[in-house]
Amino acid sequence: MHINLTAVAKANAGFLERVKAASGQDVAQCYQCGKCTAGCPVGYAMDEPPTRIMRLLQLSLKDEVLNSNAIWLCSTCATCTTRCPKDIDIAGVMDSLRIMAKREGRIKAVRSIDLFNDVFLGSVRKYGRVHELGVGMGHNLRTYKPFKDADIGTGLMLKGRMKLLPSKIKGQGEIARIFNEVRKLEEAE
């Protein structure tokens, strides 16, 4: 595959600066030693492991980065961040990239992970705390796998480790307010 890097850089002008502003990290510092990928527990399943994500960023290859499954599979374990000899918070960059990809509607790479985040935060917003059973079942239904982990769920229930009903905190209104205000502020930006 041939890519005209000059044209790409022109077309995606400002992308690198936005990543820098969002993450506070200067990816130009990366000299491709590969330590992040060597230690990445999920690197084996990524289309573009962390070292390559850093290089793609340096070249402003926005589509390759934001459409990758890597930014979603990253478990934010921060092994990369801890070991980077140039002190780049790579896991922090991955966070910023996920957020950018979601805002641009680029979520098809690993839809189930994005869905999990939505269902999880929906629970927090509604009750102030996560209702684990509701999140597990909500995620199963929305991924069309209603019986996934049914054995574990049943086990937890029999062991008294599953709360059937959610418990709402008194300050639930404060939590809903935080969600609303964050959205307003970010939309205005």
């Binding site: 966070d95 957020i99 935060l121 705390r129 905190i169 969600f179 964050v182 970010e186």
Partner: peptide
Amino acid sequence: DWSCCGATSAHSTSHLLSVAL
């Protein structure tokens, strides 16, 4: 009346939310 910290889902969605929660 403590509330959820937002966990990974919050910091994967919004930096501000992940600090505000």
